[in-house]
């Protein structure tokens, strides 16, 4: 199913009504679980990253908000001596597309769960996964797939082997393509080639239910990653008994999207036949320390623009309101 998003979509009556209804329903769900809305400015003046839509305000180069997580992190670090534990957001972000069919203006709803010293990250991760599991029902999706991964499964072995940033990027790109032969090619001649190639094979061997975690036992880094595996196992044990009938849970050991950002568990929501994930998130514990705050954080974002596309191209995937 091809995606046909115009870069700056004008929403006519049907999609406009759907956007409003979905935003309200999702923000209601988040509010019911204690998440309070923050609304960072649409205009960024501090940092103007690549990929943002930039323009001059007088002599000053500014950018449109390109990502809520970054905008919120900056706001929270600047304005709050102690962080709020639960934050939600809704609105548009503007980002230059990587693929020609992606929109520049994108509508999102999401949340952040922030913890401080002594608070349990595992509980926060499970809380977010539970919320994400409720979202297909809120949106009226007939069925969905939730992929659970963990950025540390790739990050830690690469760090342990001391790969150069360039070589690590090549390995990650090959894993992102799910191409074990490219991993072996990239590592040719490196002392860790045999170990990391075997690890890549283990990561890519399964994309199935919770039993997929067992594939990691074949990895040379099984011991190094035991803590991550235990964490994922605990999360799965907490989530499986409450899994809605219309939701399939899969373990994606080779999820490397956003590996430079995520540090731990990752979650991605798909609908059968969708070409792009509909929601994504995970743990990113390096974000706030980078802004001078010793806080840990995780969150997810529901990509409403993609859902609007899907409702147009595959209405059969949704319950009729």
């Amino acid at each position: 199913m091809p995606v046909r998003t115009p870069h700056f979509p004008d929403l006519l009556f049907g999609p406009a009504e759907r956007l409003r209804r979905w935003e309200d329903a999702l923000m209601g769900l988040l509010a019911d679980h204690g998440y309070r809305e923050l609304h960072p400015s649409l205009v960024l003046r501090d940092t103007v990253p690549d990929g943002a839509l930039r323009f001059f305000d007088g002599d000053e180069l500014v950018a449109l908000r390109w990502d809520f997580t970054m905008a919120l992190a900056s706001l929270l670090a600047r304005r709050f001596p102690e962080p709020p534990e639960r934050v939600s957001y809704a609105g548009a972000v503007f980002r230059r597309p990587v693929q020609p069919w992606e929109a520049v203006e994108r509508f999102e709803v999401g949340c952040e769960r922030i913890t401080t010293e002594g608070q349990s990250s595992t509980e926060a991760d499970v809380e977010l996964a539970r919320l994400l599991m409720a979202i297909p029902g809120v949106l009226g999706l007939k069925s969905a797939i939730l992929h659970m991964g963990n950025a540390a499964l790739v990050r830690r072995p690469l760090e342990a082997e001391g790969l150069s940033p360039e070589l690590a990027a090549e390995v990650v790109a090959a894993l992102s393509r799910r191409a074990p032969h490219r991993v072996a090619q990239a590592l040719e001649g490196h002392p860790s080639a045999t170990r990391l190639s075997a690890h890549a094979q283990a990561l890519l061997s399964e994309l199935d239910g919770p039993a997929s975690l067992a594939a990691l036992s074949a990895s040379p880094y099984a011991e190094l990653l035991q803590e991550e595996v235990d964490h994922m196992d605990r999360a799965l044990q907490a989530l499986l008994p409450i899994l809605p009938a219309n939701l399939e849970l899969r373990v994606d050991l080779a999820d490397v999207a956003g590996l430079d950002f995520y540090t731990g568990p990752t979650l991605r929501l798909w609908a059968p036949g969708a070409q792009q994930e509909l929601a994504a998130g995970g743990r990113y514990d390096r974000l706030f320390p980078g802004l001078g705050r010793p806080w840990k954080a995780a969150g997810f974002c529901v990509r409403l623009s993609r859902l609007l596309d899907l409702a147009e191209t595959r209405p059969d995937l949704f319950e009729q309101p």
């Binding site: 797939i145 994309l207 899969r250 991605r268 036949g273 969708a274 070409q275």
Partner: peptide, 18 residues
């Protein structure tokens, strides 16, 4: 020759595509 797959199809319908 390489076997390639659409990222979306592979991840959203693994039971059909794999």
């Amino acid at each position: 020759a390489r076997l390639v797959a659409a990222r979306g199809a592979y991840l959203s319908e693994p039971a059909r595509i794999r």
